[in-house]
Measured scan of single mutants.
Amino acid sequence: MQRVNMIMAESPGLITICLLGYLLSAECTVFLDHENANKILNRPKRYNSGKLEEFVQGNLERECMEEKCSFEEAREVFENTERTTEFWKQYVDGDQCESNPCLNGGSCKDDINSYECWCPFGFEGKNCELDVTCNIKNGRCEQFCKNSADNKVVCSCTEGYRLAENQKSCEPAVPFPCGRVSVSQTSKLTRAETVFPDVDYVNSTEAETILDNITQSTQSFNDFTRVVGGEDAKPGQFPWQVVLNGKVDAFCGGSIVNEKWIVTAAHCVETGVKITVVAGEHNIEETEHTEQKRNVIRIIPHHNYNAAINKYNHDIALLELDEPLVLNSYVTPICIADKEYTNIFLKFGSGYVSGWGRVFHKGRSALVLQYLRVPLVDRATCLRSTKFTIYNNMFCAGFHEGGRDSCQGDSGGPHVTEVEGTSFLTGIISWGEECAMKGKYGIYTKVSRYVNWIKEKTKLT
């Protein structure tokens, strides 16, 4: 034993070699072989497995989906700052455009905790909710729209109204504003409101030439003092309507412009014939205590009207009353817009006519005020429907199939267009061939041609 100890002390290297040989010859039971080890760690190889990531292109799944990435790591994937920024906006807080917040056709661009709407022409605001041009839906104005110097929408209202708090709607500024039905039992019968379409306001006024200088022999019209197929109006439903009495009662109609003036057809009036105007009328054979009678003290036909040349060209006249009318729910003026808007309103496509005229061709006159909704007829169809001249200051309205029309005794009465609950004068009943005849239409004086003249002559002093 002493000898062994001496050998170990003198030859430590020998001992180490012996131990190493023993270990190498022993069977290893701690580690699995290569094949079995792979069965336990069965993990798919990654895209760049075996390579240094710093030297390969980034992978979106590896960089940002398996674990949260930084902007720089995302930049490695896209290799483009702009594309990385677009991805980053949604990656950080989701897609803010998912709810489609942009209105009126706006395009949404996502941002971090926010979004941006790219608005089409005519709109602005956070969600493109603000109209900035009158060309689109009248700028959301209830009545009139004008573009300011910086191309912003400025709404306005006709006389007797003021802008509401929203700067879009119009509200009454006087007790009985024009064009409004205020009798409670008839307010439910107000005709369907007309909503502004998209309009090209630059070209809204037709490029028409008034044929002022045409000389033409007097034409022989049949029954051209021209509501057939209409309905009984309720008291106060058309408070701007008046009836004219002269040699015979209810020979023509008219509309209240203001307390002192009536507008009617020029062919209705004769110099030297006494005319009485009755406002607030409903049943011409009954006294309903809503009527107001006034005498006409002055007749002003349009300066281009000449019955000797043509009885229905420039067929418009103004009547001055001896005493002002007292405005109330049964006696209310009709609204008159400017030339541009009167023309736009007419193009809405349908209007209402009213009167006490004959209820059928050569038949009896109506006792109760009649009204009828009539569609506008395109000019080409209008011209083809008659052998008589249709001037540019006239328009056609009615039904091709016949059966409904204005008729004798309705002449001078109103053709009105309702705009968001307020009625505007767009025409004056003038003439036609018979009444409600198939293929024939009622012919009306186009008020847009005469609004400046009306307003100039009827100013209240």
Rank of each mutant, 00 (worst) to 15 (best):
F238R: 04
V174F: 04
I334S: 01
G13F: 14
E340G: 10
L425M: 03
G236S: 05
G355V: 07
E10Q: 09
G253T: 13
V248G: 14
S406C: 08
V263G: 00
C155K: 01
S217D: 12
G351R: 02
G421K: 09
E270P: 14
G349K: 08
E433A: 13
S107M: 07
A397M: 01
A366R: 07
L321K: 00
P239C: 01
E61Y: 07
C178F: 01
T158M: 11
F388R: 09
F78S: 15
A337T: 03
P44F: 05
H267N: 04
E61T: 11
C178R: 01
F395S: 02
A26H: 03
F395I: 01
Y115A: 01
E129N: 04
D33G: 12
V359W: 11
Y450A: 01
L103A: 04
Y201L: 08
R43H: 07
N310D: 09
G403W: 14
Y201C: 07
Q167H: 13
A192I: 08
C435H: 04
T445K: 00
F121Q: 05
S365P: 11
Q216K: 05
S406D: 15
K459H: 11
G21C: 07
C28V: 03
F71D: 15
T225G: 13
W261P: 00
E159M: 07
Y22R: 03
K362V: 05
S329G: 12
T458K: 02
E79V: 13
R43A: 13
F123K: 05
C170Y: 00
D378F: 02
F424K: 00
I7E: 11
T422F: 03
S423C: 07
V183N: 12
L103P: 01
E53Y: 09
S148L: 13
K339N: 11
Y330H: 10
I262A: 03
E270W: 07
L318S: 00
A317N: 00
G236K: 06
R384I: 07
T386D: 04
Y352P: 02
E79Y: 10
K440Q: 14
H303S: 07
D232Q: 08
E54G: 10
E291D: 04
C396P: 01
W261F: 07
R449F: 10
P324Q: 04
I284Y: 08
D212F: 11
N147Q: 13
E10L: 12
K146A: 11
Y47K: 04
D93P: 08
V278G: 03
R140T: 04
A337F: 01
N245R: 12
S385L: 10
R46N: 06
G254H: 00
E76C: 04
L32K: 11
I334Q: 00
G427K: 00
P301Y: 10
C134E: 03
E27D: 13
V153K: 10
N104H: 10
L130M: 15
E259K: 07
T422K: 05
G160P: 01
T225N: 14
A397D: 02
K440H: 14
K311L: 08
E86G: 14
N213S: 13
P414M: 14
R379M: 14
V331C: 05
E124G: 04
E456R: 09
V353F: 03
C141H: 00
G398N: 03
F71L: 12
Y47V: 14
R384H: 10
D212A: 07
E285M: 08
E142V: 05
R384Y: 06
N5V: 15
C119F: 00
G413P: 01
T417M: 04
E35R: 09
I344R: 12
G105P: 01
P324L: 03
H361P: 14
Y91W: 04
R364C: 04
L319I: 07
E434A: 14
R75P: 07
I454Q: 00
T215R: 07
S25A: 09
W240Q: 00
W261Y: 08
V154K: 13
P301A: 09
D322A: 06
E67A: 10
P414A: 09
A149F: 10
L376H: 06
P101F: 03
L460M: 15
N104A: 03
Q96Y: 10
D410I: 15
R298M: 03
V331N: 02
T16A: 12
A173N: 09
C141S: 00
P333F: 00
A26L: 04
C128I: 01
Y441D: 01
C407K: 04
A266F: 02
C170M: 00
S350A: 11
F87G: 15
I284F: 13
C69R: 04
D232F: 08
A436K: 12
R294F: 00
K168H: 14
L372T: 13
A192T: 15
R46F: 07
I334L: 05
D33A: 11
S107R: 06
Q237V: 07
R449K: 06
G105V: 00
F78L: 14
P414Y: 06
A207I: 11
F221N: 10
G253H: 08
L327V: 07
L60H: 09
A233W: 07
G272A: 08
